[in-house]
Design a protein around this nucleic acid. Structure first.
Lengths: 250, 250
DNA sequence: CCGCCCAACTGGTATGATCAGTTGACCATA
DNA sequence: TATGGTCAACTGATCATACCAGTTGGGCGG
């Protein structure tokens, strides 16, 4: 099978390189970036490309740019937004940071029940239909990859059905993070993906507008994957990182 | 008193204007942006400024840029990250979107207990000291503004003490959103800010590593503000927006 | 010591040219 | 008809070179 060639613009490369330096700690908070003109030389690109890259750093809350003064690195732990999660989980050299992964698991565990409850309280009929359709599709397949995609879509529908834009945006960011370790999760969380009965019951709970039940079912459901992944992370606890260089799927 | 003059670079202005058009629905998903050269003319700026602005739109997940083709608007509900929350809460004309505000309240309600529990499980001594110092400061003042700042700092410490980077980044984004309606919340959530006893007990629970208790206390604590703000939002439910033009504090 | 000024930085804006990918109309071929 | 090639007219990407504007610090005169 062919893979789509990945093409990266210069400003993307500038952004990625500086971002990794900051997230990796090579550039500490308070440090000054080299001047734009100097960065041009160092990176061998035009100043416009450098500026575009820096604009994105600024948008991510990683640097503070001051007209006339040097551009300074900020403390991303204090200033960064959730959108940093994907690039924080997987470092430049393709290793997964175990501690970040644990944090994400906790976040998922906190949000999933609340999403389910709220979706049930909304009781959107369209949502129920879509959820049931997805569950039906999940029953029709044993392909791990298809199953995983359906499980992902299921939660996308549930989040949309909750009518909560804050949940939805959080879910989008989490999803982007999720994608970066997609093929790892396919194996590790297989049991959760096979938990179709509970997803079916959850759809019923939404249809019945039973918030308490939906919340409980969601809690039980995500606990399956949490347990599995936690166990894996524990095994790698001492190394603090998991090599993750090969990635057949983006 | 003087206010610091707000200076905005051209690319900031370009970004802000296009972002508001997208979030406000003037530019629908699938629409194409005018070409860069055309935008230059329309906005009366040079092309570099336009490109820098568009780079930030791209970083925010609001548009998709393709070399050779038109730049297209994405569906921010499906593609946007949590970092959109602040600009989504307050629209260009200074009105608060009630539905977004409700969503944020839910998110806070979901996260706060989990943060408290995890902070307790970590039982970082430094965190406990800082929490108690903040509570002590809160007992020393009746100034609504100071109280609010301390309450904000308290949660910042608790989130840091949880050792969970995913929580922390979420909190940062929520905090930025929070700041946009800072002076409204000062009045509405005054009761929560005066709930010093529970914050004190929460610090004790963290010191005792009692996760269950910490979670429960946090839940009760944020319920105070949630109830107050919910009530306010209900009153404005029919208008769906609250005018929010004046803002003495950034 | 204070205040002013100026030179040497820094980022911000402007202009115009060129490179490179996409699209669609057109046309020759099979 | 269907396929594939060509080409012009878009689009964004990159480059080079100015110049404007804010910040900083050193030196100089008071």
């Amino acid at each position: 099978m062919f893979q789509t060639l990945l093409k990266q613009s210069l400003s993307d490369a500038v952004y990625a390189q500086l971002r990794e330096r900051i997230l990796g700690g090579d550039l500490a908070p308070g440090d000054s970036l080299p001047s734009e003109r100097l960065l041009c030389e160092m990176l061998g690109v035009n100043r416009g490309a450098v500026r575009e890259g820096i604009k994105r750093l600024q948008e991510s809350g990683l640097v503070r740019v001051r007209h006339g003064g040097p551009t300074q690195v900020l403390d991303f732990q204090e200033e960064g937004g959730l959108e940093l999660l994907p690039s924080l989980l997987i470092s430049e050299d393709g290793q997964m940071r175990v501690k970040v992964a644990r944090g994400i698991l906790s976040l998922r565990e906190s949000l999933a029940p609340a999403v389910a409850r709220q979706a049930a309280q909304q009781r959107n009929e369209d949502t129920v239909l879509k959820l049931r359709a997805i569950v039906a599709s999940m029953r029709d397949t044993e392909s791990a990859d298809t199953l995983q995609q359906h499980a992902f879509d299921y939660w996308g529908e549930l989040v949309a059905g909750s009518g909560n834009i804050a949940f939805r945006l959080s879910y989008n960011t989490l999803g982007r993070t999720y994608r970066k370790i997609w093929h790892l999760l396919r194996q590790v969380m297989a049991d959760e993906f096979r938990d179709r009965d509970r997803l079916s019951a959850l759809a019923d709970a939404v249809a019945a507008a039973d918030g308490d039940l939906a919340e409980q079912l969601a809690r039980e459901h995500v606990a399956i994957g949490t347990a599995a992944l936690s166990q894996l992370l524990d095994a790698y606890a001492e190394s603090a990182r998991i090599d993750f260089s090969q990635r057949p799927r983006s």
